[in-house]
Amino acid sequence: MKVRIKFAKQGAMKFIGHLDVMRYFQKALRRADIDIAFSEGMSPHMIMSFAAPLGVGLTSDGEYVDIEIKTPITTAEALEKLNKVMADGMTILDFRQIEEGKASKAMSLVAAADYTVKFRKGCEPVGKKNPEDGPAGKMDWQSDISGFFARKSIVITKQTKKGESEVDIRPMIYQMSVNAGVVSMQLATGSVANLKPELVMEAYAKFKGFELPEFALEVNRREVYADLGQNGKRRLVSLNDLGTILA
């Protein structure tokens, strides 16, 4: 039976890289005594696939891993067993059955993700250094978010293997707004088109004219979606909603 686990990765766990999160889950599933299926062959491994790996330093409330189990278990029971063996900062949010077959694989479904972005304490942008523009201090960096989002195109230069290339990232920004210092955005994610929230903020900083030092941002992924739309129309459904609760 195929199962999708939704989990949160918060706090100190943001420093654990994707490969180590995989290792973490292999051990956690054993500790929780979930009867997981293994691949065949000389060195069997757990059948397990993660959706959209999260970079080191980012937190998330919407991470997904698909596994295959041999003995049925209810959602409630699985949540209890798993949450008992989690490290602080890792929380299992859901455990749902999903359809069999390759097409339902989390990894291949991912089309978009929600993020919130804010400035780390002490890293908020300060005003212009030029004294003619008034005293340096806190600047109102939030005011142009809607203007930025309203633009038809946002061209950035990207470093690629072959050198630099120009990309219009505007089509990959599905939503963007700001509220009390927290920027929310919905971005294209996955194998077809992928945009990182840091890149959007870099473009915005350039647009608005402030410095964006390294490590200035705190990024939290809120949710990951599949696109069930047809004929070029987007219809985003969270990966969790594609599963059914095991009662």
């Binding site: 100190a12 956690a28 330093g57 490290a87 490590f215």
Partner: peptide, 26 residues
């Protein structure tokens, strides 16, 4: 939330920050 001795800037700029955060199972 767990407090850490090192700032995010430091932890994100060193190799394998997981060496310094503790919080391991058990």
């Amino acid at each position: 939330m767990r407090k850490l001795a090192l700032s995010d800037e430091i932890l994100l700029s060193v190799e394998k920050p997981a060496r310094y955060i503790g919080n391991e199972v058990n």
